[in-house]
Amino acid sequence: MRSGRWITQNEPLTYLNEATAIWLRDLRGEFRTRYAVNSILMFAVTTLVAVSFSIGSFRIGEAEKPFLCSVLLWIILVFSALSGLSRSFVKEEEAGTMDVLKLSARPQAVFLGKLFFNLTLLGALQLIIVPLFILLMNYKIASPGLFAAMIISGGLGLGAGTTIVAAMIAQASARGALFAVLSFPLLLPLMITAIKGCERAADGMNTAGWPEVRIAVAYTVIMIIMSLFLFPLIWEE
């Protein structure tokens, strides 16, 4: 128990190990309290039911369907994500564990851990909402491969763009509304891209090259790199 047990290695692998520890801890905590997942899923399901009930699968003409359904799907996904993705940071602040985390983990590891957690939440959200949406809206997809790739890359971008914002609003007052207000302008390019990508996948025309998927992946990579640079500034006093 005496001096000399701390380890001062700095290899990238240790970042990943620490990030994984934070990710798994968040998952375990989430599994026991269902703090974030309840609010995100209930929000998503409620909106989906509202959309499906009020529009139904026959009101939109076949010609308009690829585009309009894609818009509705992404509005549901983005706003459900905005309703709950800030929770993992906000909870640290509310429970008073933010400081102990600051004292024990490196900021980049914290960012990556929280990013993994948010991506897990988004994955779960999409896994439930996208099939339900396709069934309820009778949404026909001509190119399922592109559609799946667009959903996944859009989800990655959504997580990458919002995690650092969540860390900021957790340390501000008036958290709830602020998260959506700050995230939305950053997400808008991604959202428009994802809507176009899903439209293209649904009508199955000009699918060569998957341009929207590539834009979404580029967005994800750039946001993650920028966040890794900027996160230590907002995390450490």
Partner: peptide
């Protein structure tokens, strides 16, 4: 001040994507 600066850099980074989006 730090948060505002970080946010404005983040926002600036997303702007070029609008060229693809529009």
């Amino acid at each position: 001040r730090v948060f505002a600066a970080v946010y404005s850099i983040l926002a600036f980074v997303t702007v070029p994507f609008l060229v693809f989006v529009v």
